[in-house]
Design a protein around this nucleic acid. Sequence first.
DNA 1: CGGTAAGCTGACGGCATGACAGGACAAGTA
DNA 2: TACTTGTCCTGTCATGCCGTCAGCTTACCG
Lengths: 215, 215
Amino acid sequence: MTGQVRTVDGRVAGRRGQATRQKLLDCLSEMLSSSPYRDVKVIDVARKAGTSPATFYQYFPDVEGAVLEIAEEMAKEGASLTDLVAGRSWVGKSGWQAAEELVDGFLGFWRKHDAILRVVDLGAAEGDKRFYKIRMKILNAVTSSLTDSVKELQSKGKVDKDVNPAAVAGSLVAMLAAVASHQKGFQSWGVKQAELKPNLALLVHLGITGKKPTR
Amino acid sequence: MTGQVRTVDGRVAGRRGQATRQKLLDCLSEMLSSSPYRDVKVIDVARKAGTSPATFYQYFPDVEGAVLEIAEEMAKEGASLTDLVAGRSWVGKSGWQAAEELVDGFLGFWRKHDAILRVVDLGAAEGDKRFYKIRMKILNAVTSSLTDSVKELQSKGKVDKDVNPAAVAGSLVAMLAAVASHQKGFQSWGVKQAELKPNLALLVHLGITGKKPTR
DNA sequence: CGGTAAGCTGACGGCATGACAGGACAAGTA
DNA sequence: TACTTGTCCTGTCATGCCGTCAGCTTACCG
């Protein structure tokens, strides 16, 4: 099932090969953090990894292919984001706590993987289905859980009927992702890191429950 | 003040030159809509404009330089976004209307310029100050107006003291921008275009006033 | 020790880049 | 019309990256 790692020309990669492959991925990942996506060249990645461009092409069809690989790996890790929402109560003080922890966890994840997420975001916005799918996979982890939370509150009559749970959940998650991507931007509006989080949590709580939190 | 248009080597551009320059910008703009940013090549833009790569380099240092030009132009147009917020009342029914119109206007603008905005977003996220400034210029048009609205409500005691107006306004605007960039994404969650807008308006209204709208 | 498959690279044709000098062109002048 | 001037465009070239292949080296196994 977990198909072995293969080279572009179909050979199966052994220990050494996999190590080289991984090193290339690591170096690419590093380059994405330090230079614009548009300027990342195969030859630079290869040089950084102490190998030749030809070796790169043995393991990946092109830069984009390798980026997808990195993104895929990150998406796996992103599955754990579900835990930030699943099975939480949005009533009373625990509701506020849930909002705070969601914001905190989400921003942390986004910051950790900001370089690759930028590229995934771009690819998805440009309409590339592969990137789009990966982005979905990550956001879905949170969005669908949040959607369920809203639906539940709705069924108890605590949230208006005309609210579309998926639309609200999706919008809130998009907000978190966008703010995480541009955290620096807020500094120029005189908003500090520490101030940002509680305000985001407030917006999340308001969006999910329709009410101000009780702290 | 409005420094004349100049070529890379310092000559002033005449009528014909400006026309060629503009044609190159238009073609580049078109290419950005139809192919990934990373794959846009000078030679393709030049071919499309019926000219040669050398001509392109006479007017722009590189692709990025030309993209900045396009973005700058769009930013000017974006100044009018202020009208979507400035001088509006957020109380009662007019509050709901304000939220709806803001969402509508913002999404419209974003969709109209989606291709260039993608690139600006990427550049800003990568830390390029020039792109970052342009993004600020556009978002500031809305954010600062919204910030003022929140401050005003706050001074009247209608919004909690511990809310940071800039943080809330900035986050809501970031949400609008993100949702606009990934409108297609919502379809896979079963959310239709028409449903999205009122739910976004709801979130905006909740965020600004802290209360559910009266429709 | 010899066979086999994995792993790596030098080298090459092809194309984009970016710079330059010089030719084409429009517009004004005599 | 012929000449001049300054703008505008392109042919050409050196450079460097792309993507591929044949062929060499290394590791493993019987």
